[in-house]
Amino acid sequence: MKRVLTGFAALVLAAVALAEDPALEHWSKIYEVFSHPRCANCHVGDDHIPRWSGEHYGEPQPHGMNINADRSRIGAESVLCSTCHTQQNSPEPHGAPGAHVWLLAPVEMQWWDKSSREVCQQIQDPDRNGGRTLQAVADHIRHDELVHWGWDPGPGREPAPYSPEEVAVFIEQWAGAGAVCPEAS
């Protein structure tokens, strides 16, 4: 009973924090997108291994065939991503997805396996966000073709939530509300 009450109290405190700080409410939607497999699977860390997920895979798992994009983040050291990833999604189930370019995000932009607070701090750090202001981050999501692939991922893959325009607006609203990050849990 004590454990139930403690859990309930934590939920109430989290709800109160969200209700009190609109910035956190905006951030929770942004993190919902950034932590989604369509985004996080290619924002991996220094193991350079893209992740796979889809309707038959269950939880995200390492890219098959021992694929490693290496430090080049395009597989130049072993198998170039462009060997299989063409400029468009394969129409076949489990076929390779594609876009006009195909590469991992820079390693300093890791989202895979990172907490909401960690991603929140990274996205507003110019040393780890490509030297962007938050407005430039919003515009990047609004206009970048590879980012837009997350909402058009081909058959058998769940698109990222919301839309690029909605996410860009969330970022602008979050920045306008002070770009507050959640506390460490």
Binding site: L80, S82, T83, T86, S90, G95, A96
Partner: peptide, 22 residues
Amino acid sequence: ISMCGACTVHVNGLAVRSCSLP
């Protein structure tokens, strides 16, 4: 579906999976 590599050819000197490249 680009998974096995049996169809590999070069385009501009680099390997591609010809079964999936329009």
